[in-house]
Amino acid sequence: MEILNAIYENPLFGIIVSLLAYEAAVWIYNKSNKFVLLNPLLVSVAMVIGFLLIFDIPYDTYNIGGKFLTMFISPVTVVLAVPLYLQIKSLKDNAGIILFSIFIGAVASVVGICVYQKLFPMETAVFASLVPKSITTAIAVEVSEQFGGIPGITVIAVAFTGLLGAIFSPIMAKVFGVKNDIAKGLAIGTSSHVLGTTKAVEMGEQVGAMSSLSIAIAGVVTVFTAPFIVRLFGLL
């Protein structure tokens, strides 16, 4: 038993469990012809949770290694500068439209969640945790804490939002008649940050570039506007 505990508490344990689950999930995803509901993140999380429950391993033990992966989310986001660089010309040509659309979208995100809270009140801490859900994790956690939210819930909300984006973005683009690649990218990045962007990159270089750009800008817009919007609605 002690040997087992020593293994569990090694930081490598959490990392390897995640890696194996992810590899298996990607394999399943590819085998299923990229069936949307078998999204690799969704499947690997289910496997890890199942594994931890079966072997009665506490989350905190798994997270000794797991937290290193979470730590890497922000630095890894930097690689999205590459698609952005490859599309810098269309960015310059449409800078005004791009900035305006992202601004409107980021504001709509916070307004939307506030309206929802007015209509169907949730616990205040949960509401506060959801306000920044559309932006990238690192910034989202800070906004959430500022409002008295629970970082753990914010991180989950962020991941879930991103997952939705990664799965449903192509369908939403079709339903809403968003045909322009720039508009698609902006919509994906603003609504579902890095995870949505992975889908955007698959959809095309320009879609990916605009999506990556939106992550940073939507994050900054949310940081500055969210406090005002929340106060405007008399919430928190």
Partner: peptide, 18 residues
Amino acid sequence: TQNIAFFFIPSTVALMVN
């Protein structure tokens, strides 16, 4: 870019405690 989701696994697994 294709594998960013991997880094989100531990934070999503947190669902089981939260």
